[in-house]
């Protein structure tokens, strides 16, 4: 029970940190490189503690992200649902990949998300995207091992403290 509570804190804390990181300003040149933190963190939770993330929760978290970012309502919710569904499907395989293969999987996932987002924007009438639009998945790939190690370490510490 107690351990569950520490994990709860960690889950919601990581989600909140994602929202803040998403809004955080960066120098102009780095802006297009900003990875989609929410997807990376949810990827961790789906792989390691799947009880925390259901499609419904992904949808709601995405909606909150939409309200914060002021984009089209439902845009992030849709993207997040797609990403989480793919992750849940391939969870059994992804879990036992070595780190670099997981990072490649994150790249594929985020690139797929960019395509989904591109389709949404095209339908809603904002077709033109600059070339730098496609760079964010790369930084997401680079960020994945660090997100994984950080969250895994925090979770292990929480477990040790309680046992």
């Amino acid at each position: 029970m107690n351990r569950l509570r520490a994990n709860d804190w960690l889950f919601w804390g990581s989600v909140l940190a994602c929202y803040l990181l998403q809004l955080m300003p960066l120098p102009q040149a780095l802006l297009p490189l900003k990875p989609w933190w929410l997807a990376l963190v949810l990827m961790y939770w789906i792989l390691e503690a799947p009880d925390y993330v259901s499609l419904g929760r992904a949808f709601v978290l995405g909606l909150v992200g939409d309200v914060l970012a002021g984009e089209l309502l439902g845009e992030q919710a849709l993207r997040l649902c797609v990403a989480c569904f793919i992750l849940m499907r391939f969870r059994a395989r992804l879990r036992f990949f070595p780190m670099w293969q997981q990072a490649l999987a994150a790249l594929a996932l985020l690139a797929n998300d960019r395509i989904v987002l591109f389709a949404i924007r095209a339908v809603s009438g904002e077709a033109a995207v600059p070339a730098s639009y496609w760079l964010a998945p790369l930084t997401g790939m680079i960020a994945w091992p660090w997100v994984f190690l950080l969250l895994d370490d925090a979770r292990a510490r929480a477990r040790v403290r309680e046992s």
Binding site: G56, G74, A77, L78, F85
Partner: peptide
């Protein structure tokens, strides 16, 4: 069941986007 749920959520999200696009719900 999962696939069905995904389709449901996607439809919901698309519905929301269309409504928002037209009447500025957001």
């Amino acid at each position: 069941a999962n696939t069905l749920r995904l389709i449901g959520y996607l439809a919901l999200a698309i519905g929301l986007m269309v409504i928002d696009h037209r009447n500025d719900w957001l």
